[in-house]
Design a protein around this nucleic acid. Structure first.
Length: 560
RNA sequence: GUGCUAGUAGCUCAGCUGGAUAGAGCAACGGAUUUCUAAUCCGUAGGUCGGGGGUUCGAAUCCCUUCUGGCACACCA
């Protein structure tokens, strides 16, 4: 645990001790310690921390909060014998505001300088073995913006969870079985025959209209000729599907790689179908009397589990549904030893969440361990206009095009900077712009500025990095140090709540404070002592920025 | 129709498990460069937190109701 977390834990503990002491001495009439909060006030005039305990106890103690606060503060002071707190004030309706001593700011900087690229990291989630499944795009087309958003959120979340000590496996579920694949095969077949001169073939109703599969088919013909024309349709479909899936998957891997994303596991849906896992799951459900037959299909009594309607598990053609396969797949993840299964899905799958949880419970596995992050759509703006996207008609911007247009850094940052709950307006012109409007450049520029100062340093940096306490005299220096100290809390918050956007916001806040510092404070050409102090601050900032950008998957350029 | 989700400044969004005068960024307007990168900084202005009711010391936050948008409600995934 880092210094700030420790400090806050101690402060809360001391308030608790103080209250108990007061109760023992009969200065207080209450018999319990309420769940009070220690918060960082929005306005720094109200101190570093505000405690609301006086307001919470005022009713029981039959005293007005401010009067009570006086007693509580005395009790606190008798318990906390450290020199961490410079002063305590009572304010507003009864808040107790605490002001940290500067010594603490110095400790924060030292911690960052010592821990370098593990600064902010933590072992809070070291007991977790997490399977994080995201993107899992159908390998029947190219990656679109929704996939890209999922990729950025998932990879960033994985980085955050790892920084908190969790054992994280990033997994891509390949939908290489089922109805969609059959349709895909039929579409390929039509394009294949068309490419070889046949005309007037009816295109399948739910087929894939994207122009990319024509390319795929042409590629196949170039390499392998037209011999498939003369074999049974079934064989031809199988071969075309195999070829295309492999090509599409390679493509997906390549571009996710360029996006900075490496998966640990690529798991094939066909494995679930071929391994008997579905039958096993069905057997379990059968034993619990949760299955029945109707009109040739096998149904799961999800209504018995609290859902609105029953669900088909095995269709009347004998094929299991996506739902049945998914239950088996998630069971399989648990069986591989994960205690948390986090999925990132498009919001259009939200109906699937509740019944998956119920199904997990029904087969005797944890529903709570299954967490789903739902992601709203991405709306793409270019030249001030919305670009409509549709996979069916084949008009969509691909990850490939996005990377070419705005680059990895901007794309990753933009996708992560908003809460997944809200629609994301992705402004391509802004993402491309090299100006202060663009948060990515703004943050990177802070890093480049620090690097520039360090390049021009006359002596080896190490000569300045001694163990002496820092003397921070200006507000901006203190604010910057405090912001650096917040990093660990931000990571914990982002990790525990599964909200990567907090890290993106933090990066921007840290960069803002650095730019303010930069415009007020000189580092080089200052008197030796000031120079030393400020070097420590900017180097601590540099490590923090490196760590933040690393987690976001955004590069940290030395020069811009 | 039922369920989920969102509605906060002109725009894009924060606002934690209820706390102090509701915050950023962009856009607008006005300023700053002899000095480590102006891709920067400082200042001004901008609000009926969709509407209404309730809970309490205190509500953008919790509850009820209503309006508006998005999504889901397949033997698709």
């Amino acid at each position: 645990m880092g210094i700030i977390i420790n400090l806050e834990t101690n402060i809360k503990e001391n308030w608790r001790k103080g209250i108990i002491l007061g109760q023992e001495k009969s200065l207080l009439t209450s018999t319990f310690v309420p769940e009070f909060t220690l918060e960082v006030p929005k306005d720094k005039k109200n101190g570093n921390y505000a405690i609301n305990v006086a307001m919470l106890l005022s009713k029981v103690e039959k005293k007005n909060p401010r009067e009570l606060a006086v007693i509580l503060v005395d009790l606190y002071k008798s318990v906390d014998t450290s020199d961490n707190i410079e002063k305590i004030e009572i304010a507003g309706p009864g808040f107790i505001n605490m002001y940290l001593s500067d010594k603490y700011l110095s400790e924060i900087i030292k911690e960052a300088l010592n821990e370098k690229n593990t600064y902010g990291h933590n072992d809070m989630l070291s007991a977790e073995k997490i399977n994080l499944e995201f993107v899992s795009a159908n390998p029947t087309g190219l990656l679109h913006m929704g996939n890209a958003r999922g990729a950025a959120i998932g990879d960033t979340l994985a980085n955050i969870l790892k920084a908190l000590g969790a054992d994280v496996t990033k997994e891509f579920y390949i939908n290489d079985a089922g109805n969609q694949i059959e349709n895909f095969g039929k579409s390929l077949d039509v394009r294949f025959r068309e490419a070889l001169g046949e005309t007037g073939i009816a295109f399948p109703e739910n087929g894939y209209h994207g122009s990319d599969i024509m390319e795929t088919v042409k590629g196949y013909i170039e390499k392998n000729g037209d011999s498939l024309l003369h074999v049974a349709e079934e064989v031809r479909l199988k071969e075309l599907i195999k070829y295309s899936l492999s090509e599409k998957l390679d493509h997906i891997k390549t571009y996710l790689g360029k996006f900075g994303l490496e998966y640990d596991v690529w798991y094939r849906e066909s494995t679930i179908h071929n391994s008997g896992a579905i039958q096993e799951t069905m057997k379990t459900l059968e034993e619990k009397d949760l299955l029945y037959e109707n009109e040739g299909a096998v149904w799961l009594r999800t209504t018995d589990l609290g859902e609105e309607k029953d669900e088909v598990m095995i269709r009347n053609n004998g094929h299991p549904t996506y739902f049945a396969a998914d239950i088996a797949y998630h069971k399989n993840k648990y069986d591989r030893g994960f205690n948390k299964l986090i999925n990132i899905w498009g919001a259009d799958h939200h109906g699937h969440v509740a019944r998956m949880k119920k199904a997990m419970e029904a087969i005797g596995y944890s529903a709570e361990g299954l967490e789903v992050i739902l992601m709203q759509l991405v709306r793409l703006y270019k030249n001030g206009e919305v670009l409509r996207m549709s996979k069916r008609t084949g008009t969509y911007v691909t990850l490939e095009e996005l990377l070419e247009e705005v680059g990895k850094d901007a794309a990753r940052y933009f996708f992560v900077m908003r809460n997944p709950d809200s629609h994301l307006d992705f402004d391509m012109d802004l993402a491309k712009s090299e100006s202060s409007d663009n948060p990515v450049f703004y943050i990177q520029y802070a890093y480049a500025r620090i690097s520039s100062i360090l390049r021009q340093l006359d002596k080896d940096v190490k000569e300045y990095l001694d163990d002496e306490d820092l003397v921070l005299s200006l507000d901006i220096e203190k604010d910057l140090a405090l912001k650096i100290g917040e990093f660990e809390k931000v990571l914990i918050d982002a990790g525990v709540r599964r909200e990567p956007y907090r890290v993106a916001s933090y990066a921007l806040e840290l960069a803002t404070l650095f730019h303010q510092f930069y415009s007020i404070c000189r580092v080089l050409n200052e008197e030796e002592n000031i120079k030393k102090n400020r070097l420590k601050i900017i180097i601590a900032t540099k490590y923090t920025l490196e760590n933040v950008l690393g987690i976001l998957g955004v590069s940290a350029p030395e020069r811009m």
